[in-house]
Design a protein around this nucleic acid. Structure first.
Length: 805
RNA sequence: GCCGGCGUGGCGGAAUUGGCAGACGCACAGGACUUAAAAUCCUGGGGAGUUAAAUCCGUACCGGUUCGAUUCCGGUCGCCGGCACCA
């Protein structure tokens, strides 16, 4: 009899063997077929690894291990996204350099990941805070700057009145500062921006060529928010200026009854002297500017606004004079900051018109018939037909759009226009723990790029990481570092003291893994050509908009620069669900439902944790933790362990067992490719249940089982492989093959139904002729069959249905 | 409000193109082993009904298509996640 399974000894033993033999190192043979599996690298927080981390890591570890056994050269790397606020805040609080904090956290994370037996190639470990790494982050920034895609502008930012610091959107929770709970207001500051909007169309179009799960594609598209419409110029009565608006419904131009401009619109200041109610306008603007985003949202239902007295606009298609209002439901940052209002056919305009008693003109009807626009706006584009609109009358909405745009362009009063919701990327942070922006400001030459030879521009040592009162980065106090000479004219100049956001380092990290030690380039051309695109990238849904969009943007830019040779960085993108606490709530310290993976590894073993996290439920859905579930998986592995005592090659050859083996190989092989880890494991459980029922297992079958289970539970399977005396190691063996023909059972049990209700089952030969099967079926249910038979249906190998009356 | 997803036993969850609903696991119950317990092994199981069967009801709810619907279509309700007036 074998000894009890001791996971502590076995797991340590095999982890050492893998390390000593560099079992999962990538080969540089670029002629071999490659597979690049990628998981989002973690932020090494002070809390250490969370049980949520192993879910995606194990899933792709399974795929990576399987691919190696199938003969691929597999790149499955890991690194650290280590710049960021929590580390900086910890450093401030404890007066420890963020570098030290990061180093300690990374060491802990690495040890924890190592204890889980992942097949990462640790020789390719990267860290975004390593100057040799962020040298290339800065290099990409310079490329963007030189290409005119990085610029500086005045931008309102979130400002905490108590901490006196600029906050990222993520740090503003319900309108207050995440850290101190104080009010957050808007403050205008000069910020570095990246022109991601330049790539908006490509970022949509190229989604067609990649294999992302549908909801990821949808959220990318929604975030970019493309809309087609027209810009139209409205003249202002007795003035030369025109008021330009953007609309997606140019077909409703005859239904305009007023206009609205945003409170920040420049036209207001321009005609200040002629506005009759200037004081009222100023009051409204002040009120609007004080509103935080949160308040604006809260008031979303109730529209507010003020009419501008003394300014009248003229509808270019019918000459009608219309009033102009200001209201904060019109945003300066989208379109032209001004709209034409068609209250009969737009919900927001309708609400506004109702509140201020503005007239409604119906110009679209349902299939041409008048509808009650006093009750609600009629916005249905599909059934709408134009009316009261001169030459557009009788046209369907889509045709009317084409005709009106043609008209506007001919008369030179408007043009067709595409708009995006996507805004340029605010790229600066007034923080210490980030990549310095390699730019110098010279009074004579303006913003000047640092020469490449001066990269990396390293973070200076500062005394305090505390942000300054005036909202500048702590680096600004380092005058030695800040004062420099202009690379362009040699005169006195100052360095940029803002740093990059955390998104920067993670926007290109997958490129660095392909050639992490390269000092001449971010990676060699050969390595990039060979490894890209990433074949399979898995990450959390929380990163499907920003991180995914940002990294696709950088990649497309690098493609245009000739640095990489693929348009898209990731061929396939999948997402995993969250692991919740046993009470079904998100795990958090305050809820007291946090599970530490170290405890699970120690008590049940890494293989058990891996198996459980894969068995817990559908991979893409969230799942609640259950310690009992963990025990069940440990029990399964114990049962696998004890199979070593049931090896018996003398037993009779069993046809049904052969079928089950082939079915299991097929199921496990397919399920591992389709995120269906839970059913793959269920199939293996069913297989060993069968071995137990027989009381024995052949060496061949055992060997196959070990190979199939190895990606999920690598340690125990290696140990059993070695005990059984199979050659080499599992990781050096090949993935089991199955024969399709042998997955089919020769005798199948099928259901016999009357009128779709199952009455009994019969066993038939899988190749039996339809007539024979039906005859057998009728025989089997002869006592229940009454009435005339109308129809006989036979679905081969599945079901017989007799329709009788 | 809009977008996306999800509603199946006591619980986590399975079900190819529509084809025996509840695989696999947990918890539970019974049995074997044990002085006993734990562990392990075996057996059972949606509900009603019956000694047992037959039979009926069951995939959130209502309706439709079909020989046949957890699956497809229309509507209703509930839960989760994301976005917030984008003209």
């Amino acid at each position: 009899m074998s000894e009890m399974y001791n996971h502590k000894v076995v797991e340590k033993k095999w982890q050492k063997i893998w390390d000593d033999n560099k079992a999962f190192a990538v080969t540089n043979d670029f002629t071999k077929p490659k597979f690049y599996a990628l998981v989002e690298f973690p932020y090494p927080s002070g809390q250490g690894l969370h049980v949520g981390h192993p879910r995606p890591y194990t899933a792709l570890d399974i795929v990576a291990r399987k691919r190696r056994m199938q003969g691929y050269n597999v790149l499955y790397p890991m690194g650290w996204d280590a710049f960021g606020l929590p580390t900086e805040n910890y450093a401030i609080l404890n007066k420890i350099h963020p570098k030290i904090v990061t180093k300690n956290n990374v060491a802990r994370f690495k040890e924890q990941l190592h204890s889980l037996g992942y097949s990462f190639d640790w020789d390719r470990e990267i860290n975004t805070t390593d100057p040799e790494y962020y040298k290339w982050t800065q290099w990409i920034f310079l490329k963007l700057f030189n290409a005119g895609l990085a610029y500086k502008t005045e931008m309102p930012i979130n400002w905490c009145t108590s901490c006196k610091v600029g906050l990222a959107n993520e740090e503003v929770v319900n309108g207050v500062c995440e850290r101190c709970g104080s009010e957050v207001v808007r403050k205008v500051k000069s910020q570095w921006m990246l022109k991601i909007t330049e790539y908006a169309q490509k970022l949509i179009d190229d989604l067609d060529g990649v294999d992302y799960i549908e909801k990821v594609k949808v959220s990318q598209k929604n975030w970019i928010g493309r809309s087609e419409g027209a810009e139209v110029d409205f003249s202002i009565k007795d003035k030369e200026d025109k008021l330009r608006i953007y609309t997606t419904r140019p077909d409703t131009l005859f239904g305009v009854t007023y206009m609205v401009v945003s409170p920040e619109h420049p036209i207001i200041d321009k005609y200040k002297d002629e506005i009759g109610n200037w004081d009222e306008i100023v009051d409204y603007r002040n009120m609007a500017s004080k509103k935080s985003d949160f308040e604006r949202t809260e008031l979303a239902k109730d529209k507010s606004g003020v009419q501008i007295q003394g300014i009248t606009a003229i509808n270019p298609v019918n000459g009608r004079e219309i009033p102009v209002w200001i209201s904060d439901y019109v945003l300066m940052t989208y379109g032209t900051g001004a709209i034409m209002a068609v209250p009969a056919h737009d919900d927001r305009d309708w609400e506004f018109a109702k509140k201020f008693n503005l007239p409604l003109i119906q110009v679209v009807g349902k299939d041409g018939a008048v509808v009650d626009i006093e009750a609600e706006a009629f916005t249905d584009v599909a059934t709408g037909v134009l009316m009261n609109s001169d030459f557009l009358d009788g046209l369907e909405v889509k045709d009317a759009k084409v005709k009106i745009i043609q008209f506007l362009e001919e008369k030179n009063i408007g043009i067709k226009k595409v708009n995006f919701k996507l805004r340029d990327w605010v790229f600066s942070r007034q923080r210490y723990w980030g990549e310095p922006i390699p730019i110098v400001k010279c009074d004579k030459c303006g913003y000047v790029a640092l020469p490449e030879s001066e990269l990396p521009l390293e973070l200076p040592e500062v005394e305090s990481y505390m942000p300054t009162d005036n909202g500048e980065s702590p680096i600004a106090a380092m005058t030695d570092w800040v004062n420099t000479t202009c690379p362009c004219c040699g005169g006195a100049a100052k360095r940029e003291t803002d740093t990059m956001p955390q998104w920067a380092g993670s926007s290109w990290y997958f490129l660095r893994y392909t050639d992490p030690d390269n000092t001449q380039a971010l990676a060699s051309k050969e390595a990039l050509n060979y490894w890209l695109p990433v074949d399979w990238y898995n990450g959390g849904m929380e990163h499907t908009t920003l991180h995914l969009l940002y990294s696709r943007f950088w990649h497309k830019f690098l493609y245009d620069q000739g640095v990489v040779s693929t348009k898209e960085p990731y061929q396939k993108r999948t997402s995993h669900g969250m692991i919740l606490g046993s009470n079904g709530e998100k795990m958090s310290k305050s809820r007291g439902n946090v599970v530490n993976p170290d405890d699970i590894v120690s008590e049940y073993g890494a293989d058990t944790l891996r198996t459980y996290e894969m068995f817990i439920g559908a991979f893409d859905l969230s799942a609640s933790w259950s310690e009992d579930g963990v025990k069940g998986c440990r029990r399964f592995l114990d049962r696998v362990w004890k199979l070593q005592d049931m090896l018996n090659d003398d037993m009779n050859y069993s046809k049904s067992m052969e079928t089950m083996m082939h079915q299991t190989i097929k199921k496990v092989s397919n399920d591992f490719e389709n995120l269906k880890y839970n059913t793959a494991i269920a199939a293996m459980m069913a297989l060993i249940n069968e071995f137990y029922k027989q009381g024995s297992v052949t060496k061949g079958e055992f060997k196959t089982l070990l190979a199939l289970l190895n990606p999920v539970a690598p340690h125990i399977t290696e140990e059993l492989w070695s005990i059984a005396g199979f050659e080499n190691s599992v990781y050096q063996s090949t993935w089991p093959e199955y024969e399709e023909a042998k997955t089919v059972e020769s005798i199948v049990e099928i259901a016999v139904q009357i009128n779709g209700k199952t009455k009994t089952t019969i066993s038939i030969d899988k190749d039996a002729a339809k007539d024979d099967v039906i005859a057998m079926a009728k025989e089997a249910i002869s006592d229940k069959l009454t009435g005339d038979i109308i129809k006989e249906i036979y679905v081969p190998g599945r079901i017989v249905n007799i329709v009788a009356k």
